[in-house]
Design a protein around this nucleic acid. Structure first.
Length: 584
RNA sequence: GCCGCUUUAGUUAAGUGGUAGAACAACGCUUUCGUAAAGCGUAGACACAAGUUCGAUUCUUGUAAGCGGCUCCA
């Protein structure tokens, strides 16, 4: 099943190239693989190609499919292949790079491509209504920015037209939830051209969300003994030269020049060196360990301009960071605590977790720093702990950083997309670079192990994911405004304000909508702000000392949706308090 | 950074080689309303710079920002 769809996608890539050559015979072909949801082909197209041509290429592909073309594979010698592809410079390069003596070719209709195979037998197997060419983009030849930029044409393809429609619907849903659009509509953040790109500004509502999420993130760790520390945002560059980040981060570092002294400073791109300096501030004993520091703070990285995107890729990155210093024997316990915290947090947020155990590559042991036996032991611990916790995990050999193995947690959002957010990361290298030590039971100096951990990763990226996950319908405990109090007319304003005073005493976040508009308009405004509860206040409510409650609707207007009817004010207050408590 | 596209008011968006028509939002007045948009009115825009031109918001180039990718990544 899975294989058949890959064959269809790969075959469509060939058909697309074939169709393109029919219109633009001078096109030079790169490569055209099947990918998730579809396929692409990288091509060097003549200048007169326009994105509008996609439609006619798509139509031509349908004609080719209907010809019931056979896909015929054939092995030929490299020499023969060079002759066959003499007008295709990129193909010639590929042939040259291949180690085998013979190379594969595939013929369908009058189109011949260099290809190792994986095709349908006949285009009959392809549903002509289950694919679509979707976009044109640039892509480097062989993925290296040193090479020519080719044009990449993307298509999506499925086994049935129904699956294609579902996919298109999912994309539309994702577009509706785009955090950049919702961020503006819900008034959460803004980006000013004067402040600079990749440097989002958070409005009161957005700042409230950040604050609430961070409080929760830190509170979870505080119960397990993590303590807040604080470090400044600029630092002498020697710190990063010592840590090894100077070379690694290179031109991603923002440089800061002192006008008073000769100091050359940088904006911090990470916090670990600072926390290690706190560790180094006095001698440490094995009795002090583990030492648990946490700090939510903004780091700065000069990302390449083209990579910035809404809140998901920014230059001011706020990490809910923590660093733990421990003995090798304590790794397991700390990891268990971090996994506990991660599970609680993501369950609350409503996202399923998968764990990727990023281990060293056994074929390439030289790539990794630190004692091999420590690596071996640590990887065994991580594997063991993943099993014990019933994590949905998989092992990725060769995905570890050079300084230590890690567990990457992938969180799945409401649309089934996976995001790497929380990552407890072992570090065997940095503590040694900074000469951190503790005195063990025998009076000998030892190097501690450091564990990096951020629960949300970065607040900005987490928010981008979370906004799209919830489509802006935040749960009550996170909603910047929890309750809209809507007086029907001016004469009901006093009672509305009185309710407001009671809500203040309960620490509810509310808004009295006293603007001179009709009831319908105010309800519409509150619904569009995705406020969880709307209270309608009129003569009836005043007479009864009650409130009419309407819970947030989540779609288009449909009568009195979410209407919970009238209830005494005290009942409503209890209800809200209970809902907030249940969630925390 | 690279390839391609885009930029008109706070937002969405029409249009033109002779400086712009609208909707929502804002503001004012009227209205005081029972579950997703009351009525009337006022104010507000061609991203920036250079060039071509009698004249540029419109054409060209550059800069900035945005979008889709590549690469990279929290």
């Amino acid at each position: 099943m899975e294989e058949q769809i890959q064959k269809i996608r790969h075959s469509l890539a060939h058909l697309m190239a074939s169709a393109i050559l029919d219109f633009f015979p001078k096109t030079k072909l790169g490569i055209g693989p099947a990918i998730e949801n579809g396929f692409y082909y990288d091509l060097e197209l003549p200048k007169d190609f326009k994105p509008e041509d996609l439609q006619k290429i798509e139509n031509r592909m349908r004609e080719l499919i209907k010809e019931n073309q056979e896909f015929v594979g054939k092995k030929v010698t490299k020499l023969a292949a060079k002759k066959l592809f003499k007008n295709q410079p990129y193909k010639l390069e590929l042939i040259k790079d291949l180690k085998e003596k013979t190379v594969g070719t595939y013929q369908n209709g009058n189109f011949l491509d260099l290809c190792k195979g994986g095709h349908v037998k006949n285009t009959k197997e392809i549903d002509p209504n289950a694919f679509k060419l979707i976009k044109v983009a640039g892509a480097y030849w062989k993925g290296s920015e040193k090479n020519t930029m080719l044009t990449r044409i993307y298509g999506v393809a499925f086994e049935s037209a129904k699956q294609l429609q579902d996919y298109v619907k999912m994309q539309e849903e994702a577009e509706k939830r785009d955090h950049r659009v919702l961020g503006q509509k819900l008034d959460l953040f803004t980006i000013s051209e004067l402040v600079g790109k990749g440097l989002p500004l958070f409005t009161p509502k957005g700042a409230m969300l950040r604050e609430l999420l961070n409080e929760y993130s830190q509170a979870l760790r505080a119960t397990k003994g993590w303590q807040k520390v604080w470090s400044p945002h600029i630092t002498k560059n020697e710190l990063y030269k010592t840590s090894g980040h100077w070379d690694k981060f290179g031109d991603e570092l923002f440089l800061v020049k002192s006008q008073e002294t000769k100091d050359e400073l940088v904006l911090k791109p990470m916090n670990c060196p600072h926390h290690q300096q706190i560790y180094a501030s006095k001698p440490r004993s094995y009795k002090d360990l583990p030492l648990k520091y946490m700090e939510t703070t903004t780091v700065y990285r000069d990302e390449k301009a083209g990579e910035l995107l809404g809140l998901s890729r920014v230059r001011s990155i706020t990490q809910d960071d923590s660093h733990t210093f421990c003995t090798p024997e304590q790794i397991e316990k700390i990891y268990q605590e971090l996994i506990d915290v991660t599970k609680i947090f993501y369950e609350k947020i409503g996202m399923k977790l998968r764990a990727r155990l990023s281990f060293s590559d056994p074929k390439n042991p030289k790539k990794y720093l630190g004692k091999p036996e420590l690596w071996k032991k640590a990887e065994a611990i991580l594997l063991d702990i993943a099993k014990k916790n019933n994590l949905d995990y998989f092992v990725a050999q060769g995905e570890a950083a050079f300084y230590g193995p890690k567990i990457d947690f992938m969180a799945m959002d409401a649309l089934g997309r996976e995001w790497q957010l929380a990552t407890p990361q072992l570090d065997f290298v940095q503590p040694a670079r900074f000469g951190l030590t503790y005195v063990d039971r025998d009076g000998k100096e030892q190097t501690p192990v450091m564990i990096h951990f951020a629960l949300m990763g970065s607040l900005e990226r987490f928010l981008s994911v979370y906004i799209e996950h919830t489509a802006g319908n935040f749960p009550l405990w996170l909603s910047p405004i929890q309750i809209a109090i809507i007086p029907i007319s001016e004469k009901h304003l006093d009672y509305a304000n009185e309710i407001g005073r009671k809500f203040s005493a309960e620490n509810f976040r509310f808004e009295v909508m006293s603007n001179n508009e009709t009831l319908g308009k105010k309800i519409r405004e509150a619904e569009m702000q995705h406020i969880p509860y709307l209270l309608i206040i009129g003569d009836k409510e005043i007479a009864a000392g009650a409130v009419s409650v309407r819970a947030r609707g989540q779609g288009l207007p449909a009568g009195r949706q979410g209407d919970l009817g009238s209830m005494p004010l005290s009942t409503f207050i209890d209800k809200v308090n209970k809902e907030i408590k249940d969630k925390l």
